[in-house]
Amino acid sequence: MSLRSAIASARPTTPAFIAIAVFSVGLGLAGLHAKLSEPAENLRLAANADLVERIGLTDLALFTEARYTRHPSMADLHTAFQDHPASFEHFPSGIFVPPPTGLASGTLSTSIEDLSQ
């Protein structure tokens, strides 16, 4: 049987199953790659954690355009208008930073004891 007629009479599932098999192997390899790169990555992460401790970092340098995106954990939460979490955004990355969960849900923790102090 020539190659051409072999292709012509091949079952339709043959290429489909081959494709599925190839991608399954691909996914398996991805998993393997993730597993195998784990020790090296853990070393890198440990080195970075060490760096965080030594420099005293608090945030990721992922968004560098504004202070509330550069240091989301340090940004002041109470400034009216300019940096108010619900203000109009100037920066595209701002839409990725959520408003704080505690916004407008605070309580006044004033008790009799506090007042008497």
């Binding site: 991805a30 998993g31 790659h33 993730a34 790169s37 784990e38 990555e41 853990n42 890198r44 992460l45 340098a61 992922l62 968004f63 560098t64 355009e65 100037h90 920066f91 595209p92 990355s93 701002g94 990725f96």
Partner: peptide, 19 residues
């Protein structure tokens, strides 16, 4: 492009592969 936005500096970082 979405994450970078207006920022000039965008870190050239590789993430730890993880599934």
């Amino acid at each position: 492009p979405i994450l970078k936005g207006w920022a000039v500096i965008y870190p050239d970082f590789a993430l730890a592969p993880y599934i």
